[in-house]
Design a protein around this nucleic acid. Structure first.
Lengths: 219, 219
DNA sequence: AGTATTGTTGGCCGAATGACCAACGCTCAA
DNA sequence: TTGAGCGTTGGTCATTCGGCCAACAATACT
């Protein structure tokens, strides 16, 4: 605007993604207008078209960014310790903080997946798979310490934990009780130690988990 | 039901909701056309308009039905036992089976909440609140047995469990490994007993939960 | 049989959408 | 100073949307 040089280039791309993220999160992809995005990004529809050939392209770019940001945030979060189990806790916290307080790209990635055009789905899916593989790696390392139960389907465990955490975005409102970090820590404790009291644990808990592991192919 | 009289009336309403549910689930509310719904329900757009004045009305009706069906399914599911703790397990199973195999109204209720028009939001929110209160009641009864940990924020526990369960709908595909019932049971076991091994539980687990309970007001 | 009620038809309408572009200004290297 | 591009402008375009309705059909009631 007022500054010189290339006033936007990258900054304009950024403004578009930020504006689109906010709108997609609030109203969903299909309900958001290209004109709305442009206006929120302080530009005209034509300018937006110059940078992204289509509305779909904006969505894809935003989602790809969501993956990158999530990996970056979690990577940074877990760097504080070398203990694989503790890393899971920190990773959960970083993920939830990004989802609730960070930018909207992760939210859109998670909650507007249905809006992806057929053609772009595969690419985004692969990116998303990278993030999941990233968590699987952390889970595997934690499992390798021997401190967790031995009979665990780590894939299912990941879906379990990510589900609980991701769902927070549907009900969390800033400034109402707990912070995302507190919620993540509470969920971590639930995950790790369970909700049943120590006294009322049956003796064969471990074998129950073993059963869960084998009972997976039958219909 | 099967009698003559008004051949459609109720049956046509039903067809509309079923068709709309399927489409909303696949593509989302905003991306679905009134004409598509009508065609899928084997009627013309005008006929649809005769029964639901607006597209929004279809969404609201579908969501209200989602609440009713969920309460009905869980109520039926938990009737098999009187043990409050066991009831939670059966309730989870019923909820997930409805979400994954039943009709689409529960899915739409959960995943298309953003599409609700401003005016109808409050009403649906109240209905949804009824379902949540229903679960809170079950949780409270289970807590009352003394078999669970005593220091639990039941509201947070509900969000935790429902989140993990609801998220399954985003990745579950029929005929791929586990059935919804198996997934629900696995998640139940995770919830109840935790993922850390019995051997590696610190002695002060209970006090950790106690801390979680008090650490909720600070910002 | 005649009348009222209920439900359906198929097309119409204004509004809004995504995509697009020719003209234009600005910045900077030469 | 100049010219070549990058980036922006503001509007156009065909299409599609949700909502609507007057005429019609079918059924139920009297």
């Amino acid at each position: 605007m007022t500054n010189a040089q290339v006033p936007s280039s990258e900054a304009a791309d950024e403004r578009i993604l930020v504006a689109a993220g906010k709108l997609f999160r609030e109203k969903g992809f299909a309900a958001t207008t290209v004109r709305e995005i442009a206006q929120a990004a302080s530009m005209l529809p034509g300018s937006l078209h110059y940078r992204y050939a289509s509305k779909d392209d904006v969505l894809v770019a935003l989602m790809e960014r969501g993956v990158r940001r999530a990996i970056a945030a979690v990577t940074k979060g877990i760097a504080a310790t070398r203990d694989p189990v503790e890393r899971l806790k920190l990773g959960l916290r970083a993920h939830l903080e990004l989802l609730c307080q960070g930018d909207d790209s992760l939210y859109v990635l998670l909650y507007d997946f249905r809006s992806l055009p057929e053609g772009a789905r595969e690419g985004v899916e692969r990116s998303r798979g990278r993030y999941e593989a990233f968590w699987d790696g952390m889970l595997y390392e934690a499992w390798g310490t021997g401190r967790s139960r031995s009979a665990l389907d780590l894939d299912l465990v990941r879906q379990f934990g990510m589900g609980a955490i991701n769902w927070v975005a549907t009900w969390y409102r800033p400034g109402s009780g707990r912070t995302p970090a507190q919620i993540a820590d509470a969920f971590w404790t639930y995950l790790a130690f369970g909700l049943m009291g120590e006294a009322s644990r049956p003796a064969d808990v471990e074998s129950q988990f073993q059963e869960l592991l084998t009972k997976s192919g039958e219909e």
